Amino acid sequence: MAKYKVLKKFQDIHTKMIYNEDTEIEMTVKRADEVSTNLDDSFLIRVEEKQEDPGTNKDDGKEEKQDKKMKIK
């Protein structure tokens, strides 16, 4: 699934859901292509997902586990 920003309000013909302007929705690329074909390209724009910098480390809790072991001794 990919994320898209709704640029113009529209109703999905399959789900009957109404998507309002300036909201982010998830749908398959294939479904987004159908929307673009049935309406036009001005209704949706794909949102680039933010990817983490591989050089930064996430805090995975290892330090906290080590601290707990030290307190137990």
Score class of each variant (00 low, 15 high):
Lys9Trp: 01
His14Trp: 07
Phe43Cys: 04
Asp53Gly: 07
Ala32Ile: 03
Asp33Asn: 14
Lys5His: 03
Lys5Ala: 05
Lys71Leu: 08
Glu48Asp: 12
Asp53Lys: 12
Ile18Val: 15
Arg46Ser: 08
Asp22Glu: 13
Asn38Val: 10
Thr28Met: 09
Leu7Gln: 06
Leu44Glu: 07
Lys50Leu: 12
Gly55Tyr: 09
Gln11Pro: 03
Lys62Tyr: 15
Lys73Ile: 00
Asp59Met: 10
Val29Ser: 09
Asp67Met: 09
Tyr4Ala: 00
Asp40Trp: 03
Glu34Asn: 07
Lys3Asn: 13
Glu63Arg: 03
Lys68Met: 05
Asp53Glu: 14
Glu26Thr: 10
His14Asp: 07
Asp40Lys: 02
Phe43Thr: 03
Glu34Thr: 09
Val47Met: 09
Met1Phe: 09
Glu21Val: 15
Lys30His: 06
Ala32Phe: 04
Gln66Phe: 08
Arg31Leu: 07
Lys71Pro: 00
Glu34Val: 07
Leu7Trp: 10
Ile13Trp: 11
Lys69Met: 03
Lys8Gln: 11
Ile13Phe: 09
Met27Phe: 03
Ser36Leu: 04
Asn20Tyr: 14
Asn38Arg: 13
Asp33Ile: 07
Lys68His: 05
Glu64Tyr: 12
Asn38Ala: 06
Lys5Val: 11
Ser42Pro: 08
Gln51Pro: 02
Tyr19Trp: 13
Leu44Cys: 03
Pro54Gly: 02
